[in-house]
Each structure stands twice: as structure tokens, then as C-alpha cells.
């Protein structure tokens, strides 16, 4: 519980720093979605949605985007369960409901993470551009941002893992 509260605050701070990054004018890192990736998979969807909405809203306030991130976050959350069961059908077999490399295995975890980040980026950039007038640019931004965000999330993830191993 405390762990997730800390993660919530950390994600807001990290995302605020990341807002200043824009590589080649197209790739924008959106790392705060990591919080939603890490929420226990058996947590009730209402709770996940509530947390996601308020996380998105906070990010909105910090980056002056008015509801854009909140909307994208909420929609992504609804799709989290279906995406998860796509790769990991036997939910009951999980010893630890928190998705991570150790509980899911590297392959499944990467697929799960990449899908969620991709879905989130698709939703966010389509809300952002809204009209499909410049679809090539939007698609380019989605792909570039997904790759950048995933790489950064892996960085954060490895920090988290090394910390835990030391403690053990």
C-alpha cells in the first residue's frame, strides 16, 4: 500500500521532469503509466480506474493539458485486464499478483508492458491530434514515443529490482 503511494508520487515527479524531453520533436516519454502496469492484477477494476483517473488528472495539472491524460489513463485501465489475460491465461496460478519480471517471466512481462504502453500512446496521441488530418505524423509519434517510454520504464524497473535484491 505504502509502496504504491510512493510510486504514485514518484511517477508524478518523474513525469514532470520527462515533460521537458522531446526527442527529434516527435518522441515524448510517458513513463507514469508504469504505475498502472504495476498495480496488482487482482485489484478491483473500480479501484484501478479511480487511481488511474486521479493520476492522469494530476499529470494534467502539472502539464496544463486539461483532462487529456486523465481520459487516456482511464480508458487504458479498462483494457489492462483483457491485455493481461491475452498473455497470461491462468490468473489463479500467480503467486504474487503484482506484475513484474519475476512473477511473470521476462517474455510475458515485456509483451504485457509494451502492449499497455502502446495502447496508452495510441489513445493519448489520437486525443491530442483529434483530427486525422496528419495521420503519418501521429503514427510516427505513437511509435517513437512508445519505444522511448518503454525503454525508460525498463530503466525505472531495473532500479526497482536491484533495490529489492540488495534488501534480500
Amino acid at each position: 500500500m505504502l509502496q504504491f503511494a510512493l510510486l504514485f508520487i514518484m511517477m508524478i515527479i518523474v513525469q514532470t521532469i520527462c515533460n521537458h524531453i522531446c526527442i527529434f520533436g516527435i518522441a515524448i516519454p510517458l513513463v507514469y503509466i508504469y504505475f498502472i502496469v504495476r498495480l496488482p492484477i487482482n485489484l478491483s477494476v473500480n479501484w484501478v480506474m479511480t487511481l488511474a483517473f486521479f493520476l492522469g488528472l494530476t499529470i494534467d495539472i502539472f502539464s496544463n493539458t486539461q483532462g487529456m491524460n486523465a481520459l487516456a489513463c482511464t480508458i487504458t485501465t479498462v483494457l489492462r485486464r483483457p491485455i493481461f489475460s491475452l498473455y497470461f491465461a491462468r490468473e489463479d496460478d500467480l503467486a504474487n499478483p503484482i506484475p513484474s519480471i519475476r512473477t511473470l517471466g521476462t517474455g510475458i512481462y515485456i509483451k504485457y508492458l509494451l502492449s499497455i504502453v502502446l495502447v496508452f500512446n495510441i489513445i493519448l496521441f489520437f486525443i491530442q491530434s483529434f483530427t486525422l488530418s496528419n495521420i503519418v505524423l501521429t503514427l510516427l509519434r505513437i511509435v517513437a514515443s512508445t519505444i522511448l517510454s518503454t525503454l525508460l520504464i525498463f530503466g525505472i524497473d531495473s532500479l526497482d529490482n536491484t533495490k529489492r535484491e540488495k534488501r534480500l
Binding site: F53, I61, N64, G67, A70, I75, I127
Partner: peptide, 23 residues
């Protein structure tokens, strides 16, 4: 939640944003 987000998103007048919802 989607309704609240959309209400914020389609509020087109930037002069009427509330101070708590901006930076």
C-alpha cells in the same frame, strides 16, 4: 470518469480554467 475528463478536455475557453486545475 470519462465524462469528467471529456468535460475538462472540451472546455475550450482557456481564460475560464480554474486555478486549481492549472499549473
Amino acid at each position: 470518469y470519462v465524462t469528467i475528463s471529456c468535460m475538462l478536455l472540451f472546455d475550450n475557453n482557456p481564460y475560464q480554467h480554474h486555478v486549481y486545475l492549472t499549473s
